Simulated scan of single mutants.
Amino acid sequence: MNNVGFGKQTSVYFKKITRIALREKAWKFVVFAAIIAVIVAAVVSEDMFDNFESTKSGFFTLASACIWLGIFNSIQSICKEHDIIRSEYRQGMKMSSYICANIMWQALLCLVQSIIIYGICIAFGFFENCPSDGSMMPAFIEYFITIFLLTFGSSVMGIMVSSIAGNPTTAMTIMPFVLILQLIMSGVLFELSGFSEGVAYITFSKWGMSAFGSTGDMNGLEHVMAKKLPDMAQIIAEQYESDDVYKHEAFTLIVAWLWCIGITVVSAVVSVLSLKIKNRDS
């Protein structure tokens, strides 16, 4: 392997990872995606785009499902092969090629999962009442891109955690803490300020919510109290400030997507560095 280039090694390991995944019944991850999408869509579809609060909760549920799926896809993918990695690293394996091959497989898996999630959401009418125009392109395209970025980005984050963890048990122990951090830092469950607001910038949940909210023009929706008390709608509306993170404009959406991509790239780099540090004496 010493004289084999990055591209060739990546191709070899991608084929190997694909064979192993198919042999270990990778279809189960697709089934999980379908089951979770059915549950999410069935529960929240009825109230989507009826008011601000219900729509925000619906998007939060969808974003959380994508993040959970992504991390679950890959949380044990690296740590279960540490001994094999160490052996092949001694023979000239490039850690960057190995991680890149894993990321390529996750991209393929996440693409299939995203298609299934989006298809089921459409079938259940999740996006039925949403504006047809997104922030800069048709809404259905923006929604799909956001779903994919969340699922794929979380999968790469899972690879990072798996690279750092010593074994599958440790990885699965860390996983709930990662998920809880994502949920808390989304800005939906709690109002963030100070240090917590800064930490939220490096979470997929914050930027996933921003992207969904921007595409769905959440700021343009009535609040539930205004719908219940139409005579006081104007007064109630004045009490709520528009949230800049949900602005229905191209800039807001692009920023959210770029943050998701940036976190994904950083997770990939940390994965490579972590494996190199673990195997530096090999």
Rank of each mutant, 00 (worst) to 15 (best):
residue 120 I to V: 13
residue 146 T to D: 09
residue 102 N to Q: 14
residue 150 L to C: 11
residue 146 T to S: 14
residue 92 G to A: 06
residue 138 P to L: 01
residue 106 Q to R: 12
residue 127 F to M: 09
residue 126 F to Q: 02
residue 108 L to Q: 12
residue 106 Q to F: 07
residue 97 S to C: 09
residue 118 Y to S: 03
residue 126 F to Y: 11
residue 113 Q to T: 00
residue 109 L to G: 03
residue 152 F to S: 06
residue 102 N to H: 13
residue 119 G to Q: 07
residue 91 Q to A: 07
residue 110 C to D: 05
residue 119 G to K: 05
residue 123 A to P: 11
residue 112 V to S: 01
residue 105 W to D: 00
residue 116 I to N: 15
residue 120 I to G: 09
residue 125 G to M: 14
residue 99 I to T: 02
residue 125 G to N: 13
residue 92 G to V: 03
residue 104 M to H: 06
residue 90 R to M: 14
residue 148 F to D: 00
residue 141 I to F: 11
residue 105 W to S: 00
residue 95 M to S: 15
residue 127 F to G: 06
residue 153 G to Y: 08
residue 117 I to E: 01
residue 136 M to P: 12
residue 91 Q to D: 05
residue 105 W to G: 02
residue 116 I to R: 15
residue 93 M to V: 06
residue 147 I to Y: 07
residue 127 F to E: 11
residue 101 A to G: 09
residue 97 S to K: 10
residue 108 L to P: 03
residue 126 F to C: 07
residue 117 I to N: 03
residue 140 F to M: 00
residue 135 S to K: 10
residue 123 A to K: 11
residue 141 I to N: 02
residue 92 G to Q: 08
residue 148 F to S: 01
residue 125 G to L: 15
residue 123 A to W: 13
residue 153 G to Q: 11
residue 103 I to R: 00
residue 120 I to M: 10
residue 107 A to W: 10
residue 90 R to E: 08
residue 124 F to I: 12
residue 133 D to Q: 15
residue 119 G to F: 04
residue 136 M to E: 13
residue 145 I to N: 00
residue 117 I to S: 02
residue 104 M to Q: 08
residue 112 V to M: 04
residue 151 T to G: 09
residue 119 G to P: 02
residue 149 L to E: 11
residue 108 L to E: 11
residue 129 N to L: 06
residue 104 M to C: 14
residue 125 G to I: 15
residue 125 G to W: 11
residue 137 M to A: 15
residue 115 I to Y: 02
residue 119 G to D: 04
residue 113 Q to H: 01
residue 149 L to P: 04
residue 131 P to G: 11
residue 153 G to L: 09
residue 150 L to E: 05
residue 146 T to F: 12
